[in-house]
Design a protein around this nucleic acid. Structure first.
Length: 464
RNA sequence: UCCCCGAUAGCUCAAUGGUAGAGCGAGCGGCUGUUAACCGCUAGGUUCUAGGUUCGAGUCCUAGUCGGGGAGCCA
């Protein structure tokens, strides 16, 4: 007798004794003297059907009282199924009840349709549903695929800090990290809070990006990436933003913007292909129940080239299009969501890489192009999600970097170690940030980002 | 943060300012190698919170909380 996962049992040929365990999804009784019990253990999308005969010694006392959510262990023969819907099933010899559901009437995830909004309120149990189990497996598949891709291509995974004292991140509002007593804050001579008394002897925050840190490792190890949580204290209330999300940030030395674009395209395609082949069961579900046609759309992305388009040409294209937009399109203004969506969803119908944005609307570290007006920045736009990747070639020339810091009114001293990289063996380098949850959204068709992370953190919401 | 919409049974939703309803789920029974099972019966309610208008409020008004769609910020 061997203990098998549901995935292993479903993949086995009939014959032989097996032991399986899992949570009951449904129970159907037959007065012919049988109960059909579908169990799931998370090892795959499908359930395993147990056929429990009425002559089991605990049939009336326990088996007939099994409800959705109960945990059980069963042993019996793996046999060819006499019914439709599954190839094999377990002809049960014994069932052991591990944990009952104490009140089936109020069990939060009963075997019926639930809205995702409701399930967010029972996030500790929602992963027992088809949808959230599938999301969890696809999410894992994507994370593994990213690490595998990076490893196979000679990238080192760098663990950049989560707590940062850098003032130079600037990618968004930051969460403060402090051990000071909020009810009794130390003050300095100017009457301001004295963070010299705080844990780190200064003010500190949760990171909004590992980029600045990972650039240092890039300028020694050549090909590196971060993959970890990041935090933004923006009051964003949308289906595409989280206060705590995961980001992949590759950084490559001796590289330009084109190298970063190539990498982002190659990596995204690798990830989509991994999901399509390794999680065909879950993707079949998303295609059928969540977002019809998503499998074909992902295949199309894998098979087609990303369309690279300079910002200036995009503005031209949008201005000449017959499409009516709510917001103006004008060189020098950032593109709005509606513009990005038009480009990727309607005009090109494929991922679009916008490059060479006006320097005035982009960050200080992006490399100035020779035209003096634009920087070597890139955004990868995909249908439905919008911006999934944002990146750039970094300014490796110290004089140009200083010029930009001055322009933006930033203090050079705060960037002393970042500037050192340009003083000691500087090198052209480029990188980007890939929003992991947006990638999961893109692959699953889940419309709200709160449903592709186990325990979402958003403004006014940090339950669980 | 801004605009719009919503909150009623465990869940999804009905209910002219006048007795609180259905489907699903749950419990019990029937039927059936069942699989979105099917049929019958039963139980299940502080109508989001706090004020207000009214003889009377689930329904109208004000504020708040939470959720959804869109926008901004971005990944």
């Amino acid at each position: 007798m061997s203990l098998l996962t549901v995935a292993q049992a479903l993949g086995s040929d009939p014959g032989g004794s097996v032991e399986v365990q899992g949570w009951v999804r449904t129970r159907r009784d037959s007065k012919a003297g049988l109960s059909f019990i579908a169990i799931n253990d998370g090892s795959c999308f499908d359930n395993l059907q147990l056929v429990a005969p009425s002559d089991l010694e605990n049939y009336a006392s326990e088996v007939q009282h099994l409800t959705t959510g109960c945990s059980i262990r069963a042993s019996g023969e793996l046999v060819e199924s006499k019914g439709k819907g599954q190839s094999v099933e377990v002809q049960v010899k014994s069932i052991e009840v591990i944990g009952l559901v104490e009140d089936p009437d109020t069990y939060p995830v009963a075997a019926k349709r639930h809205t995702f909004e409701y399930l967010r309120d029972v996030a500790h149990l929602r992963v027992r549903t088809n949808t959230f189990g599938a999301v969890a497996r696809v999410r894992n598949c994507l994370a593994q695929a990213i690490h595998r891709y990076m490893h196979q291509n000679g990238f080192y995974w760098v663990h950049t800090p989560i707590i940062t004292a850098s003032d130079c991140e600037g990618a968004g509002e930051m969460f403060r990290v402090s051990t000071l007593d909020l009810a009794n804050l130390p003050q300095n001579d100017e009457g301001q809070v004295d963070f010299g008394e705080d844990f780190f002897g200064r003010d500190a925050y949760l990171t909004v990006s590992g980029q600045i840190n990972v650039e240092t490792y890039c300028c020694a190890l050549s090909k590196v990436y971060t993959f970890g949580p990041t935090f933004r204290a923006e009051n964003s209330n949308t289906s595409r933003h989280l206060a705590e999300f995961w980001m992949i940030e590759p950084e490559i030395a001796f590289a330009d913007l084109g190298d970063a674009i190539t990498l982002s395209e190659d990596m995204l395609k690798y990830c989509l292909d991994a999901v399509l082949t390794e999680r065909a069961d879950d993707m079949g579900f998303f295609d059928l129940r969540i977002d019809k046609g998503i499998i074909d759309r992902l295949r199309h992305v894998v098979e087609s080239d990303f369309r690279v388009l300079p910002y200036t040409e995009a503005v031209d294209l949008l201005q000449k299009s017959s499409q009516k937009f709510e917001f103006p399109v004008e060189w020098g203004l950032d593109l709005q969501s509606e513009h990005e969506r038009y480009l990727t969803e309607e005009h090109f119908k494929q991922p679009v890489v916008l490059v060479d944005y006006p320097r005035d609307i982009k960050a200080f570290y992006m490399r100035c192009n020779d035209d003096g007006k634009t920087v070597a920045a890139m955004d990868v736009l995909v249908p439905r999600i919008g911006e999934i990747v944002g990146g750039s070639q970094r300014e490796e020339r110290l004089d140009k970097l200083d010029e930009r810091l001055d322009e933006m009114g930033l203090n050079k001293d705060d960037y002393w170690w970042y500037r050192d990289l340009r003083r000691y063996g500087t090198v052209p380098h480029a990188g980007f940030g890939l929003g992991f949850e947006r990638l999961v959204q893109f692959c699953t068709g889940m419309s709200n980002i709160r449903d592709v992370i186990p325990f979402p953190r958003t403004p006014r919401s940090a339950a669980f």
